[in-house]
Design a protein around this nucleic acid. Structure first.
Length: 845
DNA sequence: ATAGGGTTAG
């Protein structure tokens, strides 16, 4: 006769793992049957056995009601019903999760009572039944009143706690059973390990592992798989792998656990390799396998692999259930294949919140704002409720698009549905307000949170940093540490960014070295923040040095860092080094990136190599406005006004609207080429055709153009119509013309105006030097620069490089001739020497 | 015993 084991796995393969005790379970000895036999009631035995047989097979087929009917029949025939019958039916109820029927059986047991209620087998079965039906209270109270708490009932109770997420309780039970002398078997161990994994109790887990080896359970696949899973959940993938490699036999679950461990620890590549090994070894794939494979593919943006995963799922005839379907959907969403994602979504027959959220976040991530909103509406119309994940998607969409109105609605929904207590949601709300320039509301939300994790602090930190509120950021940075939350790289990155946005270069550098001394390793973003911040503050030399240090530290430049480095080269006219970066960019296939090609064009143009700029420009296929702007400004600088104008006209042909920057370049080109009527026409176009509001700079160009053409009257007329207070530059250009034309009266009037402007403004000095430069009075220009230096307005070398470039520019253009690259280089070389004398380190040049 | 969705920094 086969074992009537309570836990229903009568697989002979594992029998040797069962303890002696369980093999002597009371249900194993049908005492009453032999008693009947002794009484000579053999016919009753036959009848009883036939009932038992029928009931057993009915229960196995899941026909509980028919089994219960037979039980009723037995009662009516006055047959004495033994524990075995009740046990079988209860087991059937467990398989079918027939809670109501099971309760009725329980009632009959109590009624028939006497020798069954105090029977260990039946009692245990009842505990198992209630436990499997997740009826915690009943299961617990029955368990506590058991005459004997055996390994089966302990397994049931521990499993129940695990299923309901009470992992601490389950481990307490695991300890308690050992204290009272019941030894955990291969059915209890997996649950204990699961609890260890969930609670990340690696020490406890290792203890259980030790016990497993000691009692020789380490050959069991169930135990082995659970160990793999536990180590994986505790972030000890290497140990997980060791256990996996030493398993005497591995089934699909063991392989799946290993793949999942890799995935959960970010080792997505290893997860993919594991999947391929699995196929080579011919291990059966399940939905779990493919699901984990797809998740790893999604994380790696591995389009081909993920597609294969989808194909394998279909070809293997795996049921496209909610989990597997969602994994496929997630994959297509992550890699941006929106249509495929839609297709999968439509083909799924069972959908839950997760499924809907996946499609919504797919739309959000791919910028399909309207579709995302439509989905939300559809979700509501199908009576689905938004959960915290839906809201995070919607709120991050609001942040991306600065949609404050929708964001507020989302916030309202969170309040009404008690979702704002979720830290993730709270972070999203704060981020949304910050991106919509409502820092006050973000702070309010932050203050109202009770539970604060690292990301929540970092969100507010990032908001302060973005605004350059370095003081506030620093205060928060200390506050979080007082609160016992140690900052991570991202926190440091925000602090550094805050300083750089506020022009505090030294403080940023200091923080950069501080983080390293505290063993917080700078990452790609840290380096990039620093490089681009240094460039933007005019510290191009430092930026390039940091760019090189980054590579020495073994970090490969990406689009953003390369773009910033190119900007630094542009500012410093470092053509050679710019070319080096160009080479790097080509070797690493970064050349297809729009920002990079734009920066390359910009760099070449501003470094005097207009031909190279043109070469890069011509190769780019999908051109957008910034690259046109870079090219137009390049032509402008090189005095090729007609080329600039024709490119400007070309914009109209390709249907791209010019912006304020376009007009700055083109107007300055006209200005330098003396194209008066074109300049005036452009100023008119700007307002009437493209509704771009002219800035001071734009007016300045036209005023200068008119001044230089000698039409001082018209220039002065235009000056009076400008809706801004005239600045030093515009006054300067008129002044220059006055000087040239000997219009002393107007010149003196304008000079007075100029003197009234803030005296210590470096811009004024530059303008002043431009006035003299335009008049060709270079000795006076140098004098002005010396005054600036004396006042400390000449803080960094990058600044002076740009200024000298501007001076030259005006000088050359004022001459009416095209700027000569050699001249620029000659001046720069002089300047470099000057810098060297001032103590700045020489550059790669 | 194993599987699916979300938040912060350039």
């Amino acid at each position: 006769m086969a074992s009537l084991s309570i836990t229903h796995i009568p697989n002979p393969q594992f029998f040797h793992f069962k303890s002696e005790k369980s093999r002597r379970s009371p249900h194993f000895a049908p005492i009453h049957v032999s008693k009947l036999h002794e009484n000579g009631q053999s016919s009753r035995i036959v009848v009883y056995k036939s009932y038992l047989h029928q009931i057993t097979s009915l229960c196995k087929d899941g026909k509980i009601q028919e089994a219960v009917d037979l039980l009723t029949e037995m009662e009516s025939r006055d047959l004495r019903i033994g524990p075995q019958i009740y046990g079988e039916i209860l087991q059937g109820c467990v398989w079918e999760r027939a809670f109501f029927t099971g309760q009725q059986i329980h009632a009959r047991i109590i009624k028939n009572g006497d020798f069954c209620t105090r029977n260990e087998y039946v009692e245990t079965k009842l505990v198992v039944f209630y436990a499997k039906c997740d009826a915690r209270d009943v299961a617990n109270s029955l368990f506590r009143r058991l005459s004997v708490q055996n390994v089966f009932s302990w397994a049931a109770i521990i499993g129940l706690h695990c299923r309901l997420g009470s992992y601490e309780e389950s481990l307490l039970g695991f300890c308690e059973m050992q204290e009272i002398g019941v030894f955990p078997d291969n059915f209890v161990i997996p649950n204990a390990l699961k609890a260890c994994g969930a609670l990340q109790l690696i020490g406890f887990g290792k203890g259980v592992h030790g016990y497993v080896v000691k009692v020789g359970l380490d050959g069991c696949v169930f135990v082995g798989s659970s160990l793999v899973d536990m180590y994986g959940k505790c972030d000890e993938v290497e140990d997980a792998r060791k256990v996996f490699d030493r398993m005497p036999e591995r089934n699909t679950v063991a392989w799946n656990s290993m793949i999942v461990s890799y995935g959960q620890n970010g080792l997505n590549k290893e997860a993919l390799e594991m999947f391929y090994d699995m196929r080579v070894e011919g291990v059966e794939l399940t939905g779990v396998t493919v699901s984990s494979f797809l998740s790893a593919s999604a994380n790696l943006s591995a389009v081909e692999e993920g597609r294969q995963g989808h194909a394998i799922a279909v070809l293997s005839g795996l049921e496209l259930d909610n989990n597997l379907g969602s994994s496929i959907l997630n994959f297509y969403g992550k890699v941006g294949l929106v249509e495929d994602a839609e297709l999968v979504f439509r083909s799924m027959f069972e959908k839950d919140v997760v499924t809907w959220n996946l499609l919504i976040s797919c739309y959000v991530q791919n910028g399909e704002v309207e579709k995302a909103l439509d989905m939300c509406r559809l979700m509501r119309s199908e009576n689905m409720r938004f959960d915290s994940v839906t809201l995070t998607s919607v709120l991050s969409m609001c942040a991306d698009t600065s949609n404050l109105k929708l964001g507020k609605e989302g916030h309202g929904y969170c309040i009404r549905h008690n979702l704002e207590s979720d830290v993730v949601v709270a972070s999203c709300i704060m981020n949304m307000y910050a991106k919509c320039k409502r820092i006050g509301s973000a702070i309010q939300v932050f203050s109202s949170t009770t539970q604060r994790d690292l990301i929540l602090w970092n969100t507010l930190l990032a908001a302060y940093a973005d605004l350059g509120l370095s003081g506030e950021a620093l205060k928060l940075f200390y506050r979080m540490q007082l609160d016992g939350v140690p900052p991570n790289v991202i926190s440091y990155n925000s602090i550094i960014l805050g300083f750089l946005r506020n022009g505090q270069v030294d403080e940023a550098k200091e923080m950069f070295s501080q983080m390293q001394s505290l063993n917080v390793l700078p990452n790609l973003v840290t380096w990039t923040t620093l490089i681009s911040g240094l460039t933007q503050n005019g510290f191009g030399c430092d930026a390039i040095l940091v760019f090189q240090q980054m590579q020495e530290a073994g970090i490969r430049p990406n689009t953003v860092s390369a773009t910033s480095a190119l900007s630094a080269c542009r500012d410093l006219a470092l053509l050679r080094y710019g070319k080096t970066i160009h080479g790097y960019v080509i070797r690493h296939d970064l050349c297809l990136s729009i920002p990079i090609t734009t920066s390359l064009v910009d760099m070449y143009a501003k470094c005097g190599s207009i031909c190279q700029a043109k070469n890069v420009f011509n190769v780019v296929v999908n051109k957008e406005l910034p690259i046109y702007n870079a090219m137009i400004s390049g032509y402008a600088i090189h005095g090729q006004a007609l080329e600039a104008l024709s490119l400007y006209k070309h914009l109209e042909d390709v249907g791209i609207k010019p912006d304020s920057i376009t007009f700055s370049s083109i107007l300055s080109a006209c200005n330098h080429a003396g194209l008066v009527s074109e300049g005036l026409e452009l100023l008119d176009d700007m307002v009437s055709e493209h509704s771009v509001k002219p800035t001071m700079e734009h007016y300045s160009c036209v005023v200068s153009l008119l001044s230089k053409s000698g039409d001082l009257e018209k220039a002065y007329e235009l000056l009076q119509t400008i809706p801004y207070e005239p600045d030093a530059q515009i006054l300067g250009s008129l002044l220059a013309a006055c000087k040239e034309r000997h219009e002393i009266e107007l010149g003196e009037y304008l000079s007075e105006h100029l003197l009234k402007l803030e005296p210590d403004n470096s811009g004024n000095y530059i303008a002043l030097s431009n006035v003299y430069a335009a008049a060709g009075m270079w000795n006076v220009v140098t004098e002005v620069r010396n005054v600036m230096k004396g006042k400390g307005l000449y803080k960094n070398p990058g600044c002076s490089w740009i200024h000298i470039g501007e001076e030259l520019h005006v000088f050359v253009a004022g001459d009416g001739s095209h700027p000569k690259t050699e001249e620029i280089y000659a001046t720069l070389a002089l300047l470099e020497m000057e810098m060297h004398l001032m103590g700045y380190s020489p550059m790669i040049y």
